[in-house]
Design a protein around this nucleic acid. Sequence first.
DNA 1: CTGAAAGCGCTTACAG
DNA 2: CTGAAAGCGCTTACAG
Lengths: 371, 371
Amino acid sequence: MPKALPTVYDVAARAGVSIATVSRVFRRPDEVTEATKTVVQAAVRDLGYVPSGSARGLAARRTGSIGLCFPDFDGIDQFDPLTFTAGPVSVALDPAGDFEPTGDLYISEVMRGIEIEAWRHGVAVTIAVARGPRRSEIFDNLAGRVDGMVALSRTVPDELLAHIARRIPVVMIAGPRADDAYDHISTDSAGGMRAMTEHLITSHGITDLAFIGGPADSPDAKNRFDGHREALRSAGLRVARAPRMRGDFTRSQGRAIGRELLAEGRLPRALVCANDQTALGVLDALTRAGVRVPEDAVVTGFDGIDATQLSSPRVTTVRQPMLELGRAAVDTLLRRLSDPQLAPDSRTLPVEVLLRESCGCLPVASHDDFS
Amino acid sequence: MPKALPTVYDVAARAGVSIATVSRVFRRPDEVTEATKTVVQAAVRDLGYVPSGSARGLAARRTGSIGLCFPDFDGIDQFDPLTFTAGPVSVALDPAGDFEPTGDLYISEVMRGIEIEAWRHGVAVTIAVARGPRRSEIFDNLAGRVDGMVALSRTVPDELLAHIARRIPVVMIAGPRADDAYDHISTDSAGGMRAMTEHLITSHGITDLAFIGGPADSPDAKNRFDGHREALRSAGLRVARAPRMRGDFTRSQGRAIGRELLAEGRLPRALVCANDQTALGVLDALTRAGVRVPEDAVVTGFDGIDATQLSSPRVTTVRQPMLELGRAAVDTLLRRLSDPQLAPDSRTLPVEVLLRESCGCLPVASHDDFS
DNA sequence: CTGAAAGCGCTTACAG
DNA sequence: CTGAAAGCGCTTACAG
């Protein structure tokens, strides 16, 4: 029997004021006398009163919360119901195996940027993973309870997104720009990959490059490949029509690709990977097989995740400002919320090519002997 | 002029039904004829109608969202307003430096567990970082708009938490159990550290151990130290009264401690660190100075973050099930939501000691020569 | 299966 | 500075 929660009415009665005054103590404290404030606050404390967000949101026509919606939280649907296990501490050898990082580093970083900026502006963030058969229902529910939404590309069908955008502002992160329907933030994928490829060609004199792509439906993967081709074209090299191979942005798939390349016999001089996880997987497969990177083959990535600094050799990559991506999305959203008249905004954040050991720009400290 | 958003009334009028029917199409679709459903859905589409979460929450007395509140999102208050920079791609050498991972790995993992379970049960997650002067206001706002809340220990003062808990169920993660006021989930910190220490003493015959602690106000850090002492006591070794040194759970602080230890001259045989980041920092400082781990000194961690598998040598550590911690918190919360009568639950998840190279249980492939 | 009506708990002009 | 009152947009028994 969850006894009725205290409401403004209860607080007002106990404090001997009107409900309007109770509300003011919370919303516009300086329009209230110090004395009334004190008595109201006492009543609040005594009663254990917490204002209902729903009632507030309904009356004030704003929730104070922004939404974040993203797709394939990798493998979220693979989890079984949690079973509780109690038991003693286990102690066991943990031999080195195929390392697979937990979670999606890219999303985590973007999310952190969103939280930072949300905190700075005093709004909360409501998150929903749009995946599975009930995807659009989830998305709708989220849209109904926030003032605006940040969505990662490929999260929901365009149609659904358009429906939502009639109600609240939507900022798209990454992907191609949806013609003027929403604000859009992305990073310079094509430019970054072009610069990376130019570097390999110009500074290292490499002409035998193989591009290891990402998922066929990923706009980012496509843009990166396009940038790669532009560089090849400018350099007068043969321009590949399609990626040499295609991964799915995971490290394990990168390993598989690495092994496949090895099986083919001759290795290209440079393996230009569409993202870091793929590059790390490829690197792992090659070095385990005794291939020296960068001497025998150069490997490069894209994203700039932490792990590229922990591998040996460290991976030359293109860092995209993931934190800033999240922050900029929130900034843009809040700007639009306060001025709906603004023209649709499309912003591309710059990237940086980080030259490290895996392309040969910095000396490798030593090679493990894989004994 | 944001024109008035369509409401149930608009949809009802256009579809020629009552608002109750519109509501039913969303909430109990099988209590409605196929025909009416169709006509209502058409109206919904035409009008761009999305149900208001606030109105729903108010009328139904539940929001369908759970809250997550956590503290020191490391350095969240250090960020300046975002300035937009456009510009060309930069290309630059990135020499190896002191690596500091972005974000709090522990929180990220727990958060992922929360999202997984929330998704499985069809609820959204609303996040707020309770930090800074407006901390309690943030916390209150969050509490007002969710059905229940997961809070990390040390997030807000007990008093505030108690106030909130009168309104909605709260599940605490980590920290000491607050006497029966809320459900509580933690991992076996003391047991894990005891087992780790016993291992070093028993399997490696080490008697000269130094404990590198965490923040003085961290219950986890305290529990881990307690477990360490228990093992010393059982083994009949001298029991340290306080940690040999104290870090703040960051890698950079770990490095500083490593350097300090080196400066002191003689190194203890084993450096038992209160968490992984500290261990990784210590390890980094030692190996850079030419100390061989584990031959010259053993280093161990606690948490089981990914980075402990990427260092060389890999770090022997105690893995706590962070993902499960988040999942269990949500499970417990939802269970209580559906049955408020349940007795307060306090659950400790088991941990596992992972024996790797840094304690000497597995052979190190090779040592970098730091030339 | 559908509708009329009450009610969820706030905020916010508008008076005073 | 404070109060009376309308209204925010839904859901849900209750009838029919």
